[in-house]
């Protein structure tokens, strides 16, 4: 019996050491990517190519989800607010929830599962089929040539995608409440405009989405580069990308929100 207790404690210790070690490897890799970003920024064509895969191909899911999230927000907000006779405040509700939280967070979650997983799978497969090793043997650094452009493409597209998500959401809310239900159009926009502040709401939302972009893409490229070069290895890494980035997004969101809105009681 004591043996089993000792071994389970050992197990915990082993896991902690393992994850701390992995975190260290990941941070070192992240710094390496930043240091070797020169090539991809000088040859911006490499980044443009990846922007197509991470940004343009994520557009549809972002637009559709944003529209629906906004419509649901409008519907639910109206249902609740009309009980208190302040259904004209529905614009405020939709816009504030989107700009502050849902836009950056949901767009980042979608981005992680759409683009993050694709980045991991692509880099993992390139590793498994020895393409990265071949590149290294051709005296081309795979971190500079393969990883860094994908990283920067992700970092650039995330804020745009979050903004598009929020705009689509505000439009979806407008569609449901103003066009279908018949809330006064003027009060929808004016209430929204008087409540949403540029610096506190929109700028902070923008900053949040930048953080999320860095986090998700960094996780995605690391998992891909670190994946065991087998079929299971790559599929496991892809799953880990989605799970880890989702958790990191939500955790980071809490921390950032606590910092940004601390001054607001």
């Amino acid at each position: 019996m004591p043996n089993r207790i000792v071994s389970s404690i050992q197990n915990i210790g082993h896991r902690v050491i393992e994850s701390v070690w992995r975190l260290g490897v990941a941070s070192r890799f992240f710094i390496l990517v930043l240091l070797k970003s020169g090539t991809s920024l000088r040859r911006f064509n490499l980044v443009i190519r990846e922007l197509y895969f991470t940004g343009v191909l994520s557009l549809i899911i972002i637009v559709v989800s944003g529209l629906f999230v906004g419509m649901v927000l409008g519907l639910q907000g109206y249902e609740t607010l009309q009980k208190y006779g302040s259904e004209s405040a529905v614009g405020t509700l939709v816009a504030l929830s989107l700009v502050r939280e849902l836009g950056p967070v949901v767009a980042a979650l979608l981005f992680a599962s759409r683009a993050g997983s694709a980045i991991t799978a692509e880099i993992g497969l390139m590793k498994a089929t020895e393409q990265l090793a071949a590149m290294g043997m051709m005296a081309v650094d795979p971190i500079a040539r393969v990883v860094a452009p994908r990283f920067w493409a992700g970092v650039i597209s995330m804020p745009f995608l979050a903004a598009i998500f929020s705009v689509m959401g505000v439009f979806g809310g407008y569609l449901v409440t103003v066009v279908f239900i018949g809330v006064d159009e003027g009060s929808y926009w004016s209430q929204m405009q008087s409540a949403v502040d540029f610096r506190f709401d929109i700028l902070n939302g923008f900053i949040k989405s930048c953080f999320f972009g860095v986090a998700v893409t960094a996780i995605a490229v690391f998992e891909g580069y670190d994946a065991p070069p087998t079929a299971e290895g790559v599929s496991g890494a892809t799953t880990r990308t989605v799970v880890t980035s989702s958790l990191v997004i939500l955790g980071l969101d809490f921390i950032l929100t606590a910092f940004m809105f601390r001054g607001v009681s």
């Binding site: 700009v99 705009v167 505000v170 929204m192 405009q193 949403v196």
Partner: peptide, 8 residues
């Protein structure tokens, strides 16, 4: 749009 229309 976010800055001008929503955030005024």
């Amino acid at each position: 749009v976010l800055s001008l229309k929503v955030g005024n």
